[in-house]
């Protein structure tokens, strides 16, 4: 293995330790790491337990003030080549801690990054939460959810069907990570997304000096309404 290791970040919103959500995420991560190694790329794995960040979540939500745990999580996500995001389903929706975590991140932090979406629930009736709710959150963040979403009700935990879905999702993730898609977006078309100064976890500090606003800032004028 001569090339640099891929960085995979697992984000779990499981409420207990261990949780079935974390177990689903770990099974997926293990498959992705194994597949990647088979294909000649090592993988560095980082796990973010949202449960451990909960004390920092209220202040992050109310004042965009990131505590030390959030800051470390964001640093890991900046570097991530791929993500596995897993949440329990409560009341027919992803856990509030899970959506809360992603709502405080910069809008451009996850652009182009491949993500396996995974959820667990007490009943199969929640099965569509992954594809109907969680997927739209990641669409907003312009992340790249892999085609296969994972969902596990209690009866799925020991089924071979879930294992093959995990394999499929892990394979999709591995191929997308390997392709370097997110990095290529960052290099080639990053400017076409909207950014704030210091966004993308503090890494976005480029400034377009040719913009209308920059011209206005330097004593120029805006195009007048009615001007061609």
């Amino acid at each position: 293995m001569t090339t640099t290791a891929l960085r995979l970040v697992v984000i779990s919103a499981g409420a207990s330790d261990p949780s079935s959500t974390r177990m689903l995420a770990d099974r997926t991560a293990q498959r992705a790491v194994a597949l990647s190694r088979e294909r000649g790329r090592d993988v560095e794995l980082t796990v973010i337990e949202i449960r451990e960040l909960l004390p920092e979540l209220p202040q992050a939500l109310s004042s965009q003030f990131m505590g030390p745990g959030f800051t470390k999580a964001i640093e890991a996500l900046v570097e991530a080549d791929g993500i596995i995001a897993a949440t329990p389903v409560y009341k027919a929706a992803a856990a509030a801690s899970f959506t809360g975590f992603f709502q405080v991140l910069d809008n451009d932090l996850l652009i182009g990054k491949p993500v396996v979406l995974a959820a667990t629930a007490g009943t199969a009736r929640h099965a569509l939460v992954v594809d109907q709710e969680v997927r739209s959150l990641f669409a907003y963040l312009r992340a790249l959810p892999v085609p296969t979403g994972l969902f596990a009700a209690p009866e799925d935990m020991s089924s071979t069907a879930l294992t093959s879905r995990i394999d499929r999702a892990a394979k999709e993730l591995t191929l997308l990570m390997e392709s370097g898609f997110a990095k290529a977006v960052r290099e080639d078309s990053w400017k076409s997304y909207s950014h704030e100064f210091g966004s993308a976890g503090g890494t976005e500090v480029s400034v377009d000096f040719e913009s209308d606003l920059m011209r206005l800032a330097t004593g120029g004028t805006l195009p007048r309404s009615g001007d061609a």
């Binding site: 100064f197 400034v207 606003l213 206005l216 800032a217 330097t218 004593g219």
Partner: peptide
Amino acid sequence: IRTPEIAEQAAFY
């Protein structure tokens, strides 16, 4: 706090 255009205007003048 985080608007480069404002810093740019300060610098320009």
